[in-house]
Nucleic acid binder design. Sequence first.
RNA 1: GCCGCUGUGGUGGAAUGGCAGACACUGUGGACUUAAAAUCCACUGGUAGCGAUACCGUACCGGUUCGAGUCCGGUCAGCGGCACCA
Length: 804
Amino acid sequence: MKYDRYDHKGLESKWQDRWEEEGVFHASNSSEKPKYYALIEFPYPSGQGLHVGHPRPYTALDIVSRKRRMQGYNVLYPIGWDAFGLPTENYAIKNHVHPADVTKKNVARFKQQIRSLGISFDWSREINTTDPEYYKWTQWIFLQLFKHGLAYKKEMAVNWCTSCKCVLANEEVVDGVCERCGSEVVRKVKSQWMLKITEYAQRLIDDLDLVDYPERVKTQQKNWIGRSTGAEVDFKATTGDVLTIYTTRPDTLYGVTYMVMSPEHPLLETWADRISNMQEVREYQEQAARKSEFERTEVAKEKTGVRLQGVAAVNPVNGKEIPIFISDYVLISYGTGAIMAVPGHDTRDWEFAKKFDLPIIEVVKGGDVTKEAFTDCETGIMVNSGILDGLSVEDAKVRIREYLEEKGIGHSKVNFKLRDWVFSRQRYWGEPIPVVHCEKCGYVPLPEDQLPLTLPNVSSYEPTDNGESPLAHMTDWIRTTCPHCGGPALRETDTMPQWAGSSWYFLRYMDPHNSEALVGKDALAYWNQVDWYNGGMEHTTLHLLYSRFWHKFLYDIGVVPTKEPYAKRTSHGMILGENGEKMSKSRGNVVNPDDIVNEYGADTLRLYEMFIGDFEKSAPWSTNSLRGCRRFIERFWNLQNILVEGDAIRPELETSFHKTIRKVGEDIETLKFNTAIAALMALINEVADKGSITKGELKIFTLLLSLFAPHVCEEVWQNLGMEGLACQQSWPEYDEAKCQESTVEIVVQVNGKVRARLQVAADISKEAAISAAHADERIAAETAGKTIVKEIYVPGKLVNLVVR
RNA sequence: GCCGCUGUGGUGGAAUGGCAGACACUGUGGACUUAAAAUCCACUGGUAGCGAUACCGUACCGGUUCGAGUCCGGUCAGCGGCACCA
């Protein structure tokens, strides 16, 4: 029978419907098979629809999932919608529609688009963070955090996005501007719900040892958490108060020539009467407060500050009186909000000392502190340092610590850069925080049986300029009674950040319809943890860190059995526009996946996105290269027209087939999808050269390719007259022995330069190989009259003759 | 400034310390066609040569090694992250 040209139209939706009807991708919660849980970051259903970048990770883990199923695993590969969030809310405001309606529409569009890609998601477990049956459990987790003292309300300076009119977490501020909209972020003092992620800082570092993440992800998380070891040291002020500082270099205490306090330091108020230039101090404080986060942290700018008149401090190790300054280069949020300044060995202190003409003392030999701060001094020897003189820096650190402890003026201290997580948002489209405020009882959690606390139906979602949530206008909803004393109380009007729903969603997939618990014990016992999680690098210090924190908390209260949520994490690179720039409407380089699926088919799109290059790196889109993948599928399809009977692999192709099975299988496990596809292309070229293909060969090829291009492979499988679906077959096995060629080409080098190639038996001995090399005419000519110094044989690869 | 990653043809990219450029794309030539598209075949890093072949070539400089794209030291460039964090 002669097959017509390959045409993806109709063929792809036909098989998508078949898979769905037969429920072949549904995971079972009661299976004898070993389990495998593959996870992609669930999408935010934006109004723009699917981006051509979405299918890259989806296809990658689809390939893994399909392979695992064929290898006999019960695979959970779910999807859902991370649907709370600002763009939807902003769109709703602009167009006077309800965010829930916008979400519904966007989800429908996304779902249709993703379905057209033939990803083997288990759609029966679809979840949506905006569904009250889902966010009921997000709220439940918040209540547990509250009950365990990990959620608290605090008056503090927060990042305020002037455009979103909303508070941002530290992780959401990038280069001093809002991560989402790029608008200016200013500091604003507000009462905020906070989560004590800092309590987990050490464990979030330590437990990275338990997981298989890319090294760069681990490093980035560690840097973000920012652990440092040092000491807190008490300096006496001339007022009699103690001014405590944090330093990582207590060994340089003898080099301290002044101190600096943050302009927000509370002791300044205490000292107001004693400071004779308090007017100047207040002016500086105001100036600092007015500055945006960006201005304040700009490195290049010159140091500013004010010296306190009438108050000084005493260096505890040598009794010298030293001046105290305030300067905005010292942050109130880190350490103790005050530092000892060692201008000889710290660049910032050095600049400041030069500007204010303060003494600079060298305490570690090796640099020239009159020219610049000598900071790279960990291997130096102490000088001008009293009891530390002559010690190495390393020994001095130990000695000074003992001394501080003895004298009771200091102790070792570990500090983290990580700040607590600012958890409230002054917006409508988020999970309501299930807490009421009672004048008598304070903040009271809602009883669990009152969950979910659903969003009220408001007519206006406009964010307010005064920093209140739009919910604050809903007087009917706000006024409630205190669950504790029954008196009048007010509901919390802030909502949770978008990161809340995504911090635990992978657990819900295990048991998405459970109304009694966020996930049932049996389901948890079976699925345990995510085996392979792929997502973007941009979430390393956001979602990935937040969800690890929540998971550890759930572990602590006995809800989940594992310390870590994800056993293995990988990351994909971005797909750029054809011009090598990031895809965006304004650059006019956006490729719409719908167009590609229509014109070339989902199989071509999938194959191309896997072939495009190194999975972990960014790669520019290339329509030409996409066409090459389409041609490959056509060549595969046309194999049907040169089909001959025979269940076996022909002997001359046996090695190639077995090697390809091995390579495709191995490459998938290491994310090398591009070379797996290259191997399939090479094999098809080899087979096509023979002018025919046996049924047995085509069966194997079809199953190998079916991970990448599942639709066309189902069709070919059916055309071959095979029972059942291709995706339900066993993964082809290879025979290691049959991967070995009987003869191999080895190269013969003379002094490292290739001079000849020989066909030899694969198992040739070293002696035989070397004598074969010598027997070659060219080699004989090259080596004639020269002394053989060394003969090297690398089995199956080469002979190298070193001559002189 | 600090941390991490990456530098390979015209392009995307391959190469457990062992033949650099697999597999594709592009381009050139040819076959088929009235013609074009599609398809198929050949060539496609540079220089020299009719040619077999030779020499050069993995950002740059140096080192280790029989042998380096790969390992080590230094330099330069690009990307990502962090950043007055004491």
